[in-house]
Design a protein around this nucleic acid. Structure first.
Length: 395
DNA sequence: TCTGGGGTCCTAGGACCC
DNA sequence: TCTGGGGTCCTAGGACCC
């Protein structure tokens, strides 16, 4: 079973508003959830069905959406609200099976093979659909099949508040006539290449020569052919999976130039990334700094650390080093900082060079973290980044 | 006031080793 | 007799997802 919340961010924000005394249901008007335009984050994150009728699509700039529908209402939404409703949904689903994969904040896969008791999958799905609507106040689409890929494709059929099946014997009828870009994992780069091979529909792809696809697309070629034929052997991953990397990035309110200013941003990011790392009780081995120029050119550099760490200072110093070697004076729009190759802190060996300075830094981070937990993340900050604080926002 | 943010996985080239 | 054949690790860039 694949469960997908209809217009998740917008629906959730709508019911939160209603609960907080607003009369207007933003699901019933042309409305979108969007980022902050004054901070150059003005893109459409979710849309109401009426907004969709104007041709507004997720990911496009808000100003473009306004051109399509001049009296569209724009809301900024609230990530905490989304998380809250996502958890409510998850808890309801736990009544049906504990084999749930949280694929994203608004999508779940349920392995129902051992949990049907005396009812059919259809009956269970219908009960879930109804209960979510009545008890939580929003709607979901549910896809049913014998594997994850087909269930996911099924939940994407007609919306909202609907249940669809896509069993192997239905593939030809229900899936093969769709445009090839509708297939999961076929994005905006692959579609034109496939079209050039005269592959327009998922059916065309399914019947295309597998070896040719592998020659052209490598592993991805095999995957897309299997998906087009409804083949997917992957399991529902319901056990906790620790993250493999942790990153934060920020689009700056204005382009900036110069190492000093960029370093300030890096420090803010290093503080946040390492704070999150410590909250997971993990350490990382690789630091990666990414930049986007005002011309939307992306580049990045990465380097291994001598020892795994979650220290703000270690990560910041390495990031600074990377920035220095990659920065050639461009005008910068976005800065990102990622810590990669993570592992549990308790599994790592204590470094031979775990000197006094490292212990001091750990103690400092620990103290700052406690203050942040108690008084809020922004309650305390480093003097070295006071200038950058207003230019970037972190959740 | 033109184009977010957080992830995972893959590929290709180069360094280095025996 | 111009310069083999494995392998691993590291890095940069890119595709895709929600």
């Amino acid at each position: 079973m694949h469960i997908d919340v209809n217009n998740a961010f917008l629906s959730w924000y709508a019911i939160w508003r209603l609960k907080n005394g607003e009369r207007e249901d933003i699901r019933e008007i042309p409305a979108i959830i969007g980022g902050d335009e004054t901070k150059r984050a003005g893109i459409v994150l979710a849309k109401s069905n009426l907004a969709k009728k104007f041709g507004i699509v997720t990911g496009e700039p808000i100003y473009q959406a306004r051109k399509k529908c001049p009296n569209i209402k724009v809301f900024q939404g609230d990530y905490k609200v989304y998380k809250d409703y996502s958890n409510k949904l998850y808890n309801l689903l736990l009544e049906y099976t504990d084999k749930i994969e949280r694929f994203s904040i608004d999508e779940c896969f349920l392995d129902m093979t051992e949990y049907l008791m005396n009812s059919t999958l259809q009956e269970k799905a219908n009960e879930i659909r109804k209960r979510v609507n009545e008890e939580l106040g929003f709607t979901v689409n549910i896809g049913l099949s014998s594997n994850k890929l087909l269930a996911k494709m099924a939940s994407d059929f007609e919306k909202p508040n609907k249940i669809h099946t896509l069993y192997p014997n239905e593939i030809e009828n229900k899936m093969w006539s769709l445009p090839v870009g509708e297939l999961f994992m076929l994005g905006r780069k692959s579609v034109p290449k496939l079209n050039n091979l005269h592959i327009k529909t998922i059916g065309d792809l399914a019947k295309f020569d597998l070896n040719k696809l592998i020659k052209i697309f490598g592993k991805h070629g095999k995957l897309m052919w299997e998906y087009a034929n409804g083949i997917d052997l992957s399991e529902v991953i319901y056990k906790y999976e620790p993250p493999k990397s942790i990153s934060n990035s920020t689009t700056l309110a204005k382009d900036i130039e110069g190492l000093d200013k960029l370093n300030e941003i890096l420090l803010t990011l290093a503080e946040f990334v390492s704070y999150r790392l410590r909250r997971y009780n993990m350490v990382g081995k690789v630091v990666n700094v990414g930049l986007r120029t005002n011309e939307f050119k992306d580049f990045s550099h990465q380097k291994k650390l001598d020892t795994t760490t979650s220290n703000t200072k270690d990560i910041y110093l390495k990031a600074k080093e990377l920035l220095k070697e990659m920065y050639k004076g461009e005008s910068i729009r976005l800065v990102s900082l990622k810590v990669d190759n993570l592992c549990d802190k308790c599994q790592t060996q204590i470094s031979l060079f775990d000197d006094e300075e490292t212990k001091k830094q750990e103690k400092l981070d620990e103290t700052l973290d406690k203050l942040k937990e108690k008084f809020g993340y922004t309650s305390i900050t480093r003097a070295g980044k006071l200038g950058s604080e207003k230019q970037i926002k972190l959740k």
